[in-house]
Nucleic acid binder design. Structure first.
Lengths: 300, 300
DNA sequence: CATCTTCATATCGTCCATATATGGTCCGAC
DNA sequence: GTCGGACCATATATGGACGATATGAAGATG
């Protein structure tokens, strides 16, 4: 096996001598004496097993091997500095990647877009990896490292090792077919829909808006007539567009224009609001991720 | 300015610890004790000014910065080995480049082509740089390093610092217009051309075949009638094709088919031969170049 | 030929990496 | 809870290597 005695010191010395063409002068620049420099160069040549310099009575010149090695040595020294800087910047959270998970409706909220935009502005070398999936999926994603943070709609019951930061309670809107009789009204209260058919969004894992809506309706004094359930929020809206019923979505989803669907703010009592939360690992270490979490919470 | 205390040792230690996930176990693999390894890792972290590992009660894991640095560190260690090997191979003449100069007529001689082919076969990583110019140009090219070796036709008077190796004396051929009255004869003697007009090749620097031909003619008992001089051998042949006279060229140039030109061997006394020589630096150091010179001389 | 320049060799000192010994902390077992 | 084991950090000692000083050798310069 190779002894691996070579050190960066040898490369630095070699480069200095190669540039000066003089061992003595290079020694001055290196703030050392000439004999040890000679010795280190010799040691390097022994390790490489090739002469790097031709010794002249006036200075030294590179051999072919020396010229080849000089190019490599300078590149290596540059890479070392580069690596040092990159590691430092990574530690400071200036470079890296953050894997962000979303529930379907999260990306439409301005807070989310604004957070990502502002973060990218201040730390352009941090890249985002985006993923959309269910809340349960995202929790396991956080645990096994597939995700670093996740925007979720479900409650604050912190799963083991996960912290859920409450960001805000968002107003909701009613989505109903454009030709619906109530479509002229600027805002509506929940109880006005006691006779309507509800299209509800329900994830396979059962979390999401479902429970919140049912609870609010019962508080409003009626039990909603559920016509259909769909596993994706966009599916529910398509069903609404088809005239099969109405649904309730986070207000920010009003920004999603859909042919034949009209959104109207939901007002009055009981207030039906849905949370937007940010989930992350309790023991998060990544400076970039921590900075992102911090930004989102302060933007709230 | 940076203190530059980092050494390859730190990188090797770091990589070992990163792979093992244990300082103690890595120390075993490195055939050293655990405390010094801990210290060196700490020193590295101080220099980078970032934590590379998270210390757990059971081993250590990489931080983001550590992961980034690991990739770089491994690349750097690889490059170091690569540089070492490349320098060594360059010293052995297995890689590199040789700048070869030619007089116009040299590339046509089989020795030249054969030498380059055989050399490339045994040392495929040595590349050739080719250049055609005058003898004087090539001598200066050798001196200032633009060329490493040169195939020349001129004599053996070694210019200062240059060694000229005699390779061979090549037979000559007469080139004359196809419709010339002597074109049916298989071989010809010099004295048969005493009444002909000679097109002679003369370089600006005055070297080349010129003197050799004049001398041979005078030995054959006549003074040639020189109709025209041209600076390039191909020009003389074009003038021959145009019927302006005859010329004498190295026999290997017979391989250069030219419309309207017929080559015939020049035989009899006085024997008119032209040399093919190889010029190189007397103090040549490059292993690749020395090997090429050696090959050419032994191929002779 | 004397001198200067420059690189190589010799010898010595000193600092730093390593070894040994010990302490601290976390975890799991009982 | 307490104990013991595993692992990393700290403290101190030591040895070897890097570097400094002194000298030698070889070629250039005048």
């Amino acid at each position: 096996m190779d002894d691996m005695k070579m050190e960066l010191r040898h490369l630095r010395y070699f480069v200095a001598v190669a540039h000066e063409g003089h061992i003595t002068r290079a020694a001055e620049k290196l703030r050392m004496q000439q004999p040890p420099l000679s010795q280190q160069i010799q040691a390097l040549e022994r390790e490489i097993d090739a002469a790097l310099f031709v010794r002249h009575p006036r200075g030294v010149t590179l051999t072919d091997a020396g010229r080849a090695f000089l190019a490599d040595a300078e590149a290596i020294l540059g890479e070392v500095e580069h690596a040092k800087l990159r590691a430092r910047r990574t530690a400071r959270g200036e470079v890296g990647r953050i894997a962000v998970g979303f529930t379907t409706s999260a990306p439409f909220h301005p807070l989310v877009a604004r957070a990502m935009r502002e973060f990218r502005d201040t730390r352009p070398d941090v890249s985002f990896v985006l993923e959309e999936s269910s809340s349960a999926d995202m929790v396991s994603g956080l645990r096994d490292g597939r995700l670093d943070v996740a925007f979720i709609r479900s409650g604050l019951v912190d799963p083991e090792g996960i912290t859920v930061h409450a960001l805000l309670q968002e107003d909701t809107a009613v989505a109903f077919p454009a030709k619906h009789k109530l479509s002229k009204r600027p805002a509506l209260a929940l109880k006005e829909f006691s006779e309507e058919t509800f299209i509800l969004y329900r994830r396979p894992d059962g979390r999401g808006l479902y429970d919140v809506i049912i609870a609010a309706c019962s508080e409003a004094g009626f039990s909603p007539h559920v016509g259909q359930e769909a596993p994706r929020i966009v599916s529910t809206l398509n069903l609404v567009a088809a005239g099969l019923g109405i649904t309730i979505v986070p207000a920010s989803l009003s920004r999603l224009p859909l042919e034949g669907v009209v959104y109207r703010p939901l007002k009055g009592k009981p207030a039906l609001k849905v949370p937007l939360n940010l989930a992350c690992r309790r023991d998060e270490r990544s400076a970039a991720t921590l900075a992102f979490i911090d930004l989102v919470r302060h933007l709230r």
